[in-house]
Nucleic acid binder design. Structure first.
Lengths: 346, 346
DNA sequence: CTTTGGCACTCCGCATAGTCGAGTGCCAAG
DNA sequence: CTTGGCACTCGACTATGCGGAGTGCCAAAG
């Protein structure tokens, strides 16, 4: 089943895939010899195609139609055959242009990134907002709102600002809050939120806290402030581009995709998964556990600030997508965002 | 053209509209007498229908099809014929259930509202996030981030929290910032952001500011902090419900709608427009200046906090929508949100 | 004067049938 | 191994015909 492929088969498979990406049609042997630089007769091509079909790289919708690449074929194409284009000047300018305005806040920057991706690529853009927990603590501030309400404002190194409203069991005076603020800012600087929280929890358990009432209350407040929140957001832009795909005639399938968009956790999982690795990744829908994404692919890349990976972004569309032009777009955008997040917070 | 309509015509028009809402099909005279309680012969109905068509309430897709209500008909139906159902117990429970969790921040609450609308109504939910400018100032806080960066955090009466990063021309010391904070919190409490800003600008022009250097800089800082931002956000949820509508077979039309969704400013304008009025409003797409919304309708209602209207929410879908069941849903949701925003900020 | 049944007509939707083209598998010859 | 040839398949498209639902109009009944 997974036999290696001869040089010739590979060429033909590549040609079929590229032709199908371009036309969205099943490809026949004759058409292939006509449009692609293959100096073989249709009959020979047929033989190869039959073989490729047996190996699971191709599939016929019905007897007398051409053949269509399977997901296995796309996987192979992406891993072994694909030569990625260079990002052409025009497109690069087009991307740069979107970021002329300086001093965007991170949230706006990411939204803009998603929009840019979608408009340059003509596919649907995805941007995952960094998870607060793994970003690096820069500063925290407490603001007393009422007797039992305290607003916590964190700022992370990468420039994210996040608020959280805390209902406290007992009242804190403004002075106490200031003390706590100072203490936290001194101890936590440079740690990730997750580490900071662990540290505080450790403190709480320690003996000294037992005797220092203020410290105890402070710890409780900050633990609350830094507690895991259900964050995890994905910014999706340009869904309407999907409607332009010829695949859209399959209404049922498109409905599934749109439902997947609404269930953002699904996309979040996929984007999360790539956070470990570096560079551009391609996820083919059918390879995931999500039936909603059958026939779809994602191209993703991570972006990072000064202190390591922050999140991921990319595009999504039918598996039949022009990987060679989209990959550099995603790649370039990720690099661009990384650079901008760096600059903004010297 | 705009002749008044006889009792009988009205009944028939109503029957046609309701039948068409239920079936999405053009309605013929015979079918009408069969399915609706009308004790007239098809021939008589035909006469009336011809008349209604002439008056612009009906339209035949072609000679031998039934008739379809025009936008004028929907308008008349909504304004004069519609009797709104009571919200049934089941649906009310369904809505309430979504808001069990207490202590949501406003942003989350509104997102949840949009989701609820969409899932209860089976249409696409819209919620406009309140415009910061018209909300009532409760508190402002400045946090110094670096020598030239100050973070401003506003809190409004209704519980919105908004951050803004300000690049300052010159450095402020922590003490100065505190002074400014105190000054602003004293003077601005109870004003809307817009009013507050106006007041500051007035201050700046006054003579005393010219001689008080700190005050002058403070004013500049706060003017910056309160400046008009491009806010105005619409939370859209449940777009996939549109795909279930039989109207969806008209692909072109659906593409237009999805594009409209991406251009949020368009929806924002429409929601804005209703902010003056009270109660539930229905906007019929063709009546607006937006060709994208041809064939669509919005049902909207305002929600408010303690201190007046904050924003609007509603559902959007094809004009052929079950107004009588959707209106109470939108109405109830708006009321619910208003109540929750009140409670949260004693 | 309104209502109603009748009638001729229109036109869409659907099903059936036929044709065309692209593609296939297989085989035998190069 | 490659290639040309050949018979076969099957979907896409077109043409044709039919039935149903609807229409307008008219004349008779209420």
């Amino acid at each position: 089943m997974a036999e290696p492929i001869s040089e010739r088969s590979r060429k033909i498979l590549e040609a079929i895939i590229e032709e199908h990406i371009a036309t969205a049609q099943p490809i026949g042997s004759k058409a292939l010899t006509r449009f692609q630089a293959i100096n073989l007769s249709p009959a020979s091509v047929r033989n190869v195609m039959a073989e490729l079909e047996e190996q699971g790289y191709l599939h016929s919708p019905h007897t007398s139609a051409g053949r269509v690449p399977t997901e296995k074929a796309y996987r192979y194409y992406i891993d072994s055959l694909l030569r990625v284009d260079c990002l052409d000047r025009a497109r690069r300018d087009q991307i740069e242009q979107h970021y002329h305005r300086r001093g965007l806040q991170m949230g706006e920057l990411l939204r803009e990134a998603s929009r840019t991706l979608s408009s340059v690529a003509h596919y649907t853009g995805l941007v995952m907002v960094p998870r607060l927990q793994s970003t690096v603590f820069r500063r925290i501030e407490f603001v007393k709102l009422s007797s039992r309400q305290v607003l916590a404002v964190f700022i992370t190194r990468s420039g994210m600002i996040q608020n959280r409203l805390i209902e406290t069991a007992e009242e804190f005076t403004a002075g106490e809050l200031e003390q706590i603020t100072n203490y936290l800012n001194q101890t936590m600087s440079g740690l990730s939120i997750r580490e900071a929280r662990a540290l505080i929890l450790a403190d709480m358990a320690q003996e000294k806290a037992l005797y220092d009432r203020l410290l105890q209350r402070a710890s409780r407040l900050s633990a609350e402030a830094l507690s895991e929140s259900a964050d995890g957001e994905v910014i999706i832009e340009g869904t309407s581009h999907l409607l332009d795909q010829p695949e859209f005639t399959d209404l049922e399938r498109m409905k599934r995709i749109f439902r997947a968009f609404e269930q953002k956790s699904l996309l979040l999982n996929l984007l999360d998964r790539g956070l470990q690795s570096k560079g551009v990744q391609v996820i083919i829908g059918g390879e995931t556990e999500y039936p909603e994404l059958a026939g779809c692919s994602l191209i993703t890349a991570n972006y990072s600030g000064r202190r390591g990976t922050l999140g991921a972004l990319g595009v999504i569309g039918p598996s039949r997508m022009p990987y060679s032009t989209l990959i550099p777009i995603v790649d370039y955008t990720a690099g661009m965002i990384s650079r901008m997040l760096d600059e903004e917070n010297e």
